[in-house]
Amino acid sequence: MNNAIEIRGLCKSYGDFSLQNIDLTLPGGSILGLIGENGAGKTTTMKCILNLIRRDAGEITVLGRDSIAQEREIKQDVGLVMDECFFHDVLRPLDVGRVLAPAYRDWDAGLFRDYLDKFGLPEKKYIKEFSRGMKMKLSLAAALAHHPRLLILDEATAGLDPVVRDEILEEFLGFICDEDHSILISSHITSDLEKAADYIAYLHGGRVVLSAAKDDILDNYGRVGCTREQLAAIDPAELVRVRRETFGCEALVADRAAFRRRYPDLTVDKIALEDIMLFIGKGEEL
């Protein structure tokens, strides 16, 4: 299976913030979840993929094609949903279909209407009367109606209630059932990515600080709870990050089985993606 996205040495500087040598790969037929704090560079990375901004250095290949030289062909196969709805308030879903149809070679008006029905979106109601959830569903219907092979989703589930979020996640999982389909999704809601993603890349301060298969991360990373004295006795090379609290310390380890073998007296627990983010974002390096 070819890679849906390959990013090598991507750099983009805004002066006060820069993406630094980003290397990312989204294997075809899978979901890559991009996590990171606000301003970590997730949206900037996605904008570089879509050529919405100019990169300073690096190469990006999307669906086996160069993202600059073959931009228009690539975009025929890409569906985009961002954290807000870009359709004008005075349009109706029916209008959105008519506006987008000529832009895409494979626009499927029947499929678009099916999605509107499935999501319960009245085709003649003005978008200004839609709730946030309805707007995001409309964006998703528009992104899926031209039979894309790659979905790029930037905080697409942000601000949605759990029911709508679950519905949309189901749709992503349905989309990925086709082995030719792939999804790049950024989200602060790490629990969603734990459910759906195959791979996780963590961006921190414009760099990729963690990139691996989600199962490998969740199976291997762990949290050690200990006292300051116990922490001092641990080989710093074993610890990814450390957090010192009033009543003790916590440390993030990259291989909890190996750590357990080496320090059998210490407790190592499984850790969720959100806690890994907190460790890397707020913890200290030894």
């Binding site: 228009r72 975009k75 025929q76 961002m82 359709f87 004008h88 308030d89 832009a103």
Partner: peptide, 18 residues
């Protein structure tokens, strides 16, 4: 003005129109 209000430009530039 309508486009600016809807932040349409970013979306339009992601369409396969160039």
């Amino acid at each position: 003005s309508y486009d600016e209000q809807a932040k349409w430009d970013r979306y339009a530039m992601s369409l396969p129109l160039g």
